[in-house]
Amino acid sequence: MKSALSILTVIAALIGLWYAACVPMNIHEAAIQAQRAGQEVTPAEAPERRKMGRIALAVKNPGLWRTVYEQDRPQLPAPHQVGAELWKTTWGMVERGRAFSKRSLILHGWITLSATLLGFAFGTLLGIVLAVSIVHSRAMDMSVMPWIIASQTVPILAIAPMIVVVLASLSVDDLIAKGVISMYLSFFPVVVGMVKGLRSPDAMQMDQMKTWSASRAQTFWKLRLPSSAPYLFASLKVGVAASLIGAVVAELSLSQDGGLGARLLAGSYYGQTVQIWSALLGAATLAAVLVWAIGLAQGMTLRRMGFQR
């Protein structure tokens, strides 16, 4: 109850801040529109207005404050504008029976989600396989680990289009191409977490296995793998969020297929800031839901395994 209250307080504060920021962000446009409508604005010259700065301009013209929230293409749309757009493109579309039309955020969210989950599944698999081989082979540890780390220092935004082009020339399906980029981002936290988890049994536990003459495989299945569960779940949370970012970035290069990334791109193309923000919030919500779902699985599994009580 108390935590719900504090969460609501934080959200209210953020929204308040957002509304406040709309005033200086949209004040220039508000001034231009007001002048066109024949209203007085001080100062009257646009270059002068630019020179004096947004905040000063806002202070000088309190009469414009209301109109900063009613623009078609505001530099910073207000929360209720984004909310209305979100509503219109989700539930509004469902009501009209067009949940999967091109204008529906549900369709685009679904497109992003499928690439995200595909990439996440393969990223997790790849991460686990790499972690297992790193833990069991010193050579792998020495030779592959540096490459894995190096792979993450490459800016994904730069190489995503190249990967897309290469895969397209191999006539790979677009969904798989997007999944590859998601996988590229999501396998890394899984490798790091799993390596740590598989190495988490202490010297005593390893000695204990030795006193029973356990084989490496037995030590792996009965001790290392179960011990790694808390680490795996922590990395999965990071991994799924990274996977979503990968999917959105990939959609910038494959925008003809739609998806939240494509909405972002189209929005910025046509100066549709409201659309950009609603796609952004849509992506954030999707990420939150995915992380929450993994948290749920984590809680259930770890409680059952006795790691948490």
């Binding site: 204990q208 006193t211 179960p226 006795g306 790691f307």
Partner: peptide, 14 residues
């Protein structure tokens, strides 16, 4: 030939 008991019980929680 032998069983070994460590200071810490080291039971698996799962």
């Amino acid at each position: 030939a032998y069983g070994y008991v460590f200071q810490h019980a080291g039971l698996y929680p799962w």
